[in-house]
């Protein structure tokens, strides 16, 4: 227990050390994780843009669970210059995040913002939209419908979890529908692919020039996947399809930017374990409290947000497995 209690201190120290190189100019940061230095008193997220390729930037959040101490900034957003304006990929958890992201973009490139795209319906993908009023804000039809359905509960939930960071935040929904296929802005060509499984509609955006892929919520790296809208079997199928694309630089929404299939494989391992175990345990009559206390493969327990996220996984998903185990028998 003592060791658990001191761990966050060690992490903070590590984060502080990692953040030092990030003080250097953008061009020198390639290949370095830029852990944000959060200032709670000033409500400053400490956002930094790290160039992954010419004109392709990631803005990295903490690889952790939502807490006021990290500003509830646990998402990697991004932006890409095109010669005809900037494409912004997700806008963060709050009005403040959106404003600070927009200011960061203005500090990084003289190009105006041309378009915002949301890769799925989750709150940290779009609650920063207030800062992008007047810009076309795009998402798939299913994501737009989902955002509309969930927006009010997202606002209240995130206020409860994050406090002051959420001041003045109101959900602003996308203004245009976008579908899978090629997307051209200025000199850039993107490929958009739509999957489902993490949510009802998961977009992947690939920049054809650099090969950098923003894979949204389909891939988690060194972090327990989140599942409030998940369908594990569909998600696994999506990952199989994604694996076939032979992606190079992968930007997951949660966890470090990496090369190749490392995050994809972790996410696949976790979902396979969860799907197989939940199926088996439901067929043996396990209760949710048994499932909450089951021993997972040790590797998962070293990931960020363990065990809190697993507690949520069980709440979201186990009832479905349970129903399947109880249902086929006779009813009156």
């Amino acid at each position: 227990m003592t060791r658990t209690a001191t761990l966050p201190g060690a992490l903070v120290l590590a984060a502080a050390l990692l953040a030092v190189p990030a003080q250097q100019p953008v061009s020198a940061q390639q290949g370095q994780a830029a852990a944000p230095q959060v200032n709670m008193a000033r409500l400053d997220y400490g956002l930094k843009a790290r160039a992954l390729a010419d004109g392709v930037y990631v803005v990295e959040g903490a690889n952790a669970d939502f807490t006021p101490a990290n500003g509830c900034n646990i998402i990697n957003t991004g932006f890409i210059t095109t010669g005809a304006g900037v494409l912004v990929i997700n806008t963060g958890t709050s009005r403040l995040y959106g404003e600070q992201l927009r200011a960061l973009i203005a500090r990084t490139t003289p190009e105006p913002v041309a378009q915002v795209i949301h890769l799925n319906l989750h709150p940290d993908y779009f609650l920063g939209n207030q800062a992008f009023a007047g810009v076309p804000i795009t998402a798939t039809a299913a994501t737009r419908a989902g955002m509309q359905r969930e927006a009010a509960s997202y606002e209240t939930n995130l206020y409860r979890l994050c406090g002051d960071w959420m001041k003045g935040t109101e959900a602003r929904l996308p203004t245009q529908t976008i579908g899978p296929g090629p997307l051209r802005i200025g000199q850039r060509e993107f490929e958009l692919r739509e999957y489902r499984g993490h949510t009802g509609s998961d977009l992947v955006l690939i920049d054809k020039t650099s090969g950098v892929a923003f894979v949204g919520g389909l891939v988690f790296a060194d972090r327990v996947p989140t599942t409030p809208h998940a369908d594990p079997k569909a998600w696994l199928a999506a990952l199989d399809s994604l694996a076939g694309l032979k992606l190079g630089t992968v930007v997951p929404s949660h966890g470090p930017v990496h090369q190749g299939t490392r995050g994809l494989q972790q996410t696949r391992d976790f979902l396979r374990w969860l799907d197989t175990s939940f199926t088996q345990w439901a067929s043996q009559g396990w209760e949710m409290n048994d499932v909450l206390r089951a021993a997972p493969p040790e590797a998962f327990t070293r990931w960020a947000a363990w065990p809190a996220e697993y507690t949520r996984n069980v709440a979201h998903l186990y009832p479905g497995y349970e129903r399947a185990a109880l249902q086929p028998r006779r009813s009156p």
Partner: peptide, 14 residues
């Protein structure tokens, strides 16, 4: 009502 008796499931924990 839907339900099931899980008998002889020694692997039920707790």
């Amino acid at each position: 009502v839907s339900g099931r008796v899980f008998a002889g499931q020694a692997s039920t924990p707790g």
